[in-house]
Write a protein that binds this DNA or RNA. Structure first.
Lengths: 352, 352
DNA sequence: GACGTGGATTAAATCGTTTAGCATGAGGCT
DNA sequence: AGCCTCATGCTAAACGATTTAATCCACGTC
């Protein structure tokens, strides 16, 4: 009933097939489908109608072979359960998909070997760019290897110093020192830092911010108050418990990230103390969950969604012009005061 | 110093180039790289050495053109900020990448139109399979369109009834009725349901579980106690506040998911009540955050990581054999009792 | 009627791989 | 010597699109 022109027609529907059916060349069909001005209006409409009726779906793999452009962006993160990376991924996906790009996802799990394998696989799909938050310990050469076939590389959140690739992230030194200043203003003098490790740029910078914050108020840096480690709930909890057992325990802590801080809040509660009153905690990132904790977490908003979008923009710009000078987008973080911090109790104030 | 054989050599390194350099045909090189037994051991090693030295990276797009296999799996979710979907995505990614597949990600944002566009774009990359959690309101035809060019389709979490595609998820009817029974056992008689809507299979099933749970204990279903809506923190909070304002308020609620439940916990606290003592809340999914709330959330563990892996397996199986009979993997959920539920206060017990 | 003009279409090359089928040559066997 | 087999490698044809340069054709102009 619905015409013989739109018959079932067996196999896959390709440009070839459409061309034959329309009595045109593949060249014309290809141009018509992409709204080229050189093909006559009438022809264009006819082609597009038939393509739609036939359920034609372009094979972008084939097209990419010719055009050397895939519209794929390889995104390499080391963790996606951590909500801060989830929020980043969501921002990246949205910005890229709005620009007609599609995300090919690889998760490296904070392991350079695995990361190398995963990114190597992604590279086989010839993404137009990589957006990477490199695993701790990633070297300049690991990243260079990605760029070897002319793929743009953008770093996000973390960076490999001296790699020379674009970067979008937050000013971690300033961020953590804001946190420290807040605690000092509340009267705290023994302030710990929980989480962070040397192999990641974020670890180094946040430690630097911690030290800078202390120094700015004339406080000495005491290495026993730095509970180095990964940014997990587990580490946060264990670390705060260890700190509380010290002979001269701190009264407050800044954390490497919010996850750590949540763990610390749990540890404090488990020790029978009340966060905000007995011990102050500042998180880092301000993920969605932070506002919902009990007590709500005082933290530093690093503007993850914004720098996610910035990273996407950097990638698009570099794809458009591979020769452009290296660019760094570093956002200024904001302190968000909630209920997990409060005035220092009248603990004995040590000199220094 | 390191030999003239490994010279810089300009442009992209392709099979062609390797073949020329080696004095072999592309056929031999291709076979050698894939460890085909028809090429001599010695040749194979020589080829692989040179390939490595040259930094050869196969172009999988080109290969796929020939083999009609991309090793890409299109994953379409409607939300990735929601931790339950993040956990799902992580499980999918891990299982697929272990099987040599790569995830091409699309986020539909609970909007059928957008979902159609996104999945259409993914389809252009000719994934070997789609794993989809369809947006509410998705019809059988929307899904069929995906399968049209022979791409395997697997549904996860949610399903479009009657679509005939494989499915992996949790038994929602049983799950919610477990939650209801738990509350009944604690003495609750007026039990609300927060969240869920008719356009998603999960919404229908969980409502059904709620009703079945009530019926199993001879309790009547009261439509004013179903606060239909999306599974968000916002909805959970508003819903519980509305329920508390009812002339004859409930003493407990089961929720569509954990996010809803978190919102409800906030609402209860904001109303000056204590969850677990004054009002009981049961969540759904048991995402990581659930154990950390204050009070820790009683919830139903739907085994998301397990059915994520199951979905990946179904996809791989269907790729291997497109003719195999449709399969549904439906896991039995477990109740996880924590602190957000407790005995009903001696409120007036209504008959019925 | 020759010729230029310009709009519409097409032929053919190309991208980088895979694979069916064929070619070659060295032994082994009768 | 003649024939077969086996191991190895090669030729050439796909796969499905894009793009450049060429062709075709109708029309107006002088």
């Amino acid at each position: 009933m619905d015409g013989d022109r739109i018959s079932a027609g067996g196999g896959k529907v390709t440009l070839q097939r459409l061309a034959v059916e329309l009595g045109l060349s593949t060249a014309t069909v290809s141009l018509a489908l992409r709204d080229s001005p050189v093909v006559a209006e009438e022809t264009r409409l006819r082609v597009q109608d038939v393509a739609r009726a036939r359920g034609y779906v372009a094979n972008r793999g084939a097209a990419s072979l010719r055009t050397a452009r895939t519209n794929i962006i390889g995104v390499g993160l080391h963790d996606i359960i951590n909500p801060s990376f989830t929020e980043l991924l969501a921002a990246l996906e949205e910005a890229l998909s709005a620009a007609g790009k599609t995300v090919l996802l690889g998760v490296g799990q904070e392991d350079v070997t695995r990361q190398t394998r995963i990114l190597g696989t992604l590279a086989e799909y010839r993404p137009d760019a990589f957006i990477v938050s490199p695993a701790a310990g990633t070297g300049v050469d690991d990243l260079r290897a990605l760029a070897i076939s002319g793929i743009a590389v953008v770093q996000v959140t973390r960076e490999v110093e001296g790699s020379g690739f674009d970067f979008a992230g937050s000013d971690d030194v300033t961020g953590v020192s804001l946190a420290v200043s807040h605690l000092v203003a509340l009267g705290h003098r023994r302030i710990a830092m929980i989480g962070g490790f040397d192999a990641a740029s974020t670890g180094r910078r946040r430690l630097e911010g911690y030290q800078a914050g202390l120094a700015a108020h004339g406080l000495a840096y005491d290495p026993t108050l730095w509970a180095s480690g990964r940014g997990t709930r587990e580490h946060g909890r264990l670390a705060v418990e260890a700190l509380l057992r010290l002979p001269d325990p701190p009264t407050a802590a800044v954390c490497f990230n919010d996850l750590c801080a949540f763990g610390a809040l749990m540890g404090i509660q488990a020790a029978g103390l009340t966060a905000g009153a007995d011990f102050s905690i500042v998180g880092y990132d301000d993920i969605g969950e932070a506002a919902l904790w009990h007590p709500a977490l005082t933290t530093v908003f690093t503007r993850i969604p914004e720098y996610g979008v910035a990273a996407a923009k950097l990638a698009l710009a570099r794809i458009a012009d591979p020769q452009r000078p290296m660019e760094r987008t570093v956002l200024e973080p904001h302190l968000v005061v909630r209920a997990s911090t409060g005035p220092a109790k009248s603990a004995k104030h040590r000199a220094g």
